[in-house]
Write a protein that binds this DNA or RNA. Sequence first.
DNA 1: GTTAGCACTCTAGCGGATAGAGTGCTAAGA
DNA 2: TCTTAGCACTCTATCCGCTAGAGTGCTAAC
Lengths: 341, 341
Amino acid sequence: MDLDERKLKVMRAVVEAYIATAQPVGSRTIAKEFQLGVSPATIRNEMADLEGMGLLEQPHTSAGRVPSDRGYRVYVDRIARIARPAKRDLEHVRSHIHRQVSEVDSVLRVSGKILSEMTDCLALMVGPEAGDAILNTIELVPLRSGRVMVLVITEDGLVQSRMVDVPDVPPGELERASRMLNDYFRGMTISQILEGSSLTALRRELRYCARLADVVDGLLKRSAQGEAMDYVIDGAANIMKHPEFRDVARAQRVLEALARRSIVQELLDRFPGGDLAALIGSESASEDMRECSVVSAVYYFGGRPGGRISVVGPRRMDYGRVMGLLKTVTEAVEDVLDDRD
Amino acid sequence: MDLDERKLKVMRAVVEAYIATAQPVGSRTIAKEFQLGVSPATIRNEMADLEGMGLLEQPHTSAGRVPSDRGYRVYVDRIARIARPAKRDLEHVRSHIHRQVSEVDSVLRVSGKILSEMTDCLALMVGPEAGDAILNTIELVPLRSGRVMVLVITEDGLVQSRMVDVPDVPPGELERASRMLNDYFRGMTISQILEGSSLTALRRELRYCARLADVVDGLLKRSAQGEAMDYVIDGAANIMKHPEFRDVARAQRVLEALARRSIVQELLDRFPGGDLAALIGSESASEDMRECSVVSAVYYFGGRPGGRISVVGPRRMDYGRVMGLLKTVTEAVEDVLDDRD
DNA sequence: GTTAGCACTCTAGCGGATAGAGTGCTAAGA
DNA sequence: TCTTAGCACTCTATCCGCTAGAGTGCTAAC
């Protein structure tokens, strides 16, 4: 059986009514609120069909219908439109994401904050992988008491730092080493540095201190994979605003899952190629996230895919609006980071 | 009426039984579980007295007693002892907080993680204020397309960075400026720099770019107050493990409160001088935190008070154990940061 | 000062009854 | 053949009254 025009209209009605009320939707409600030009009985028949196709579900016999994961999927793919954000939302985004806060970290943090506020959902921001980013400088700054601050800075403005103990470095040696390192590596991408045999050169330069070499090495590797999985979450409490999380245990499960790096990693890896997509309920394949949907967008940074900005909320989510907001925010982030204006 | 020996014993019994069971405690339970050598009737009389003194409360006539905020206060001040952590907890701390992760940020993050795991509470970590820290270096690193990465590094290893647009800087000017800045300021504390007239010197040095001067200025100010209120929260979901937060709305209120910088600031400002202290329920004076207690410790960094590590949980909290753990973690953090071993 | 005994109070939990919402089916109508 | 009105049916949520149980405060005896 295929989805004719009217079935799609009924699907839209069910999904949108359910999104609005969080109550199972009955045929009478649809007949009253949506002008389909047919009687409740007809709508009932259509709904029975849609249930047969696995797009709707019935909590119990005498309740209305609720969209299934596959139902939401049909809604997102064939019915919903990415909505142009309301004027005040646009202004909100513009007034908060601007060039003043041009550092990657702050930009992401601010974006998460306003996204979670606007959507009443949880926002999850993943920093850019620096693998394809071009190295600008490696700084070795001597501190008191035999410590050295190692800084790796990319052309795009990513900074990674780590402190390391290297007692007894001959004076001047750090400067020499850092000059050498920079002569060698400046202008290469992090991946190139990591792949090539250049790392052995690094070790040679820093031979008087294996520890320091390890740290530089580690920092490069970390920024390659990247700083990536240093993700930030904002608006965690928002999850609890939604009636599907009236039961604390559910909210707890979600928040605990999102606190685990590996789960988040896996979740985001599941996203298909496109720049803006949604994972609905069990599509995310994590048992703990079954009650949630995730809408996620890739942002570009330095001309390459940078990281991801995602919105996590109940499956019963206004996908059109959230996708619109997410798109707007992503574009704003790109503009700021890439210094367009 | 004063608190004689036996009243204190009854208080201990009520608090500890309530901590263990989360159920109002009756006289019979106390008589059975704690060896006070008196009958339930006597205990009932004592409990009535304690209620009269405002240390116990009765949810309703035929329920047992529950400690009031003032009751917990008496327990913490006069009854509980800071407990030496269990062997496995000690090992847990030692195995996770070690010299490998010597960067302030990571140390705090890790500490928060293990604290929240061990206590089933929420951990709140505040970074060190750098006001009294000694400046090591101000780096101005030119990036592509007229951007400059400004780095402020203190002797203790705090790094603050910000990116700024400064088009059309004459080549060599950045180096000159940074050399000058460092000659001027290296070795001074951030506060000294901010107080003295030195800032005007800064502006003179950077006169060809007001924007850059603003940024350096801003970064210094920010690290003075400090990076301070860039706090990190771990184990937010733990709050929901406790029966007093079975009602989502309560958990939500707490998490929302803790997401607000100003509330957290205010909360922590309320702590008295000591290095390890607790705020119980309404003592924190924030309506949203009424259901919570906060145990907080100052850690020292570079010989001065650095920041705070705090544990937020239900008032019904094992204060002795939490304080012991917090003390242990704080000391471990100090050891790592100050490079004792 | 302590304790046994007892009447009293309040809640949590259970079962039954009821109202209401929504369905599926049938048969009539377009 | 598709649509619709009508109707019997089902299931839940809610209310009510009842009861068991826990814990108290009071009194009187020790």
